[in-house]
Amino acid sequence: MAIRQIQQILRSHPSSDGDGVKIQRVHGFDNAAFSPFLMVDELKSDQAADYIGGFPPHPHRGIETLTYMLRGHFQHQDHMGNKGELKDGGAQWMSAGKGVIHSEMPIMSDGQLHGFQIWINLPASKKMLPAQYHDFQSDVITEKQLSEKNLIRVIAGDLTIDGDTLTGPLQDTGVPTTIADWRAAAGEQLNSCLNPDFQAMLYIYQGAVSIEGRHAKAGELVMLTAGEGLAITATEETGLLLLSGTPIHEPVAHYGPFVMNTMDEIEQAIRDYQTGQLTD
C-alpha cells in the first residue's frame, strides 16, 4: 500500500473579506493539485473588532462552501429562507449552484472565535443546479476517541481508521469528499486509509506534525502525494483538518464570489446578479 507523503507546503497569509473580517487564507484556484478544493479560510480571534462586521448579503455561483466552527457561533441567512446558527463544533454546508445570496455573522463564544470556511468546486454539470443548504450541530458530527488524547471527527464522507470506517453526516457534496478534524497530544498518531483516487491535503491549525520524516506546522497547508495510506505523528499538541476528494479535471474561471469554467460564464453570472436573475 502506497503511503502518502508531503508533496508541497503552502503557507496561509493574512487577508480580509466581507465587512473587513480578518482571516488567514490559502487558495489554489489555479492549482490542479488543490482540486476539488479551492480555498481554506481560517477565522481566529479574541478581538470582536476583527470580525464584527461579518459577511453582509453577497452572492455565489458555481461552488459549495463548508463552514466548521471549533469555537464560536456562525449565523447564516439566505434568499431561500434558510436560517441557521452553528454552535461550538458544528458545521454548515451550502451548494450555491446556479446562485445564492446569503449573509454570515460570526459570534464569539466565551471570548473566542475559531473556525474555517472551505470552498469546494462544483463540476460543470452541477454549477447551474438549484442552491441547497444544510447545517449539522456538534452532536451529529461522527467522532471516535482513538485514545485518551487522540480524537477524530468526520464531518463529510467516509474515513477508514484501523479497519473501522467512520461516516460523516454530510454525504451529498457535488463530488465525493472526505473532511475530518484531528486533535491529538504530542506523540499521538493517526493511521488511516484514503480513497486512492482522491487528492488530499491537511490544514494545520495548531501545533506541528511529522509525515514520513518531513515536518509541517500551524498555519500551513500540506499537499500530499497519491496513495492509500496516511500516517501522521503529532510532534506537539496538534489540530488539523484533513481534506480529500475527487479532483475535477475542468478549467477554472474565478472572479470574486463566482467560480465557473469560462470567463464568458463569469460575465453572465455578473449580469445575472446585476439584473436580479442570479437566483431565478
Rank of each mutant, 00 (worst) to 15 (best):
A2N: 10
A2I: 12
R4F: 15
H13S: 15
S15L: 05
D19V: 12
K22W: 00
Q24C: 04
R25E: 05
V26P: 00
V26Q: 00
G28I: 11
G28M: 06
F29P: 03
N31D: 13
A33H: 12
P36N: 06
E42P: 02
L43Y: 11
L43E: 03
A48I: 04
Y51N: 09
Y51I: 08
I52V: 12
G53K: 00
F55L: 05
P56F: 02
P56C: 01
H58S: 05
I63W: 04
E64N: 05
M69W: 08
R71C: 14
R71D: 11
G72N: 02
H73K: 14
Q75H: 13
H76C: 11
H76A: 08
H79K: 14
H79Q: 10
H79I: 15
M80S: 10
M80I: 12
G81K: 01
G84A: 15
E85K: 13
E85L: 14
E85D: 14
L86H: 09
K87Y: 13
G89M: 08
M94I: 09
S95E: 02
G99C: 07
I101T: 02
I101M: 05
M105T: 10
M105Q: 12
P106K: 00
S109E: 10
S109K: 09
D110P: 00
F116G: 00
F116C: 03
W119E: 09
N121D: 13
L122E: 04
K126D: 02
K127V: 09
M128N: 07
M128S: 09
P130Y: 04
Y133F: 15
F136H: 10
F136Q: 04
Q137G: 08
Q137Y: 10
D139R: 06
V140R: 09
T142C: 12
E143S: 12
S147H: 04
E148K: 14
N150D: 04
I152M: 03
R153A: 06
V154Y: 07
V154R: 05
V154F: 05
A156M: 09
L159M: 07
L159I: 10
T160A: 13
T165S: 12
L166H: 04
L166C: 06
T167Q: 10
T167V: 07
T167E: 07
P169R: 10
L170A: 03
L170S: 05
D172R: 09
D172K: 14
D172I: 07
T173K: 07
W182P: 00
R183L: 14
E188G: 07
L190W: 00
L190R: 00
N191C: 02
C193P: 00
F198L: 07
A200Y: 04
M201V: 01
Y203C: 13
Q206R: 15
A208D: 01
A208S: 11
I211W: 03
R214W: 08
H215P: 05
A218H: 08
L224Y: 01
E228V: 09
E228A: 11
G229A: 06
G229E: 04
A231W: 01
I232Q: 06
A234D: 01
E236P: 00
E236A: 11
L242M: 06
L242A: 06
L243S: 00
S244P: 02
S244G: 09
I248P: 00
V252L: 13
H254C: 13
Y255H: 14
P257E: 01
N261I: 14
N261P: 14
E267A: 13
R271W: 12
Q274H: 11
G276S: 12
G276R: 13
Q277Y: 14
L278C: 11
T279H: 06
D280P: 06
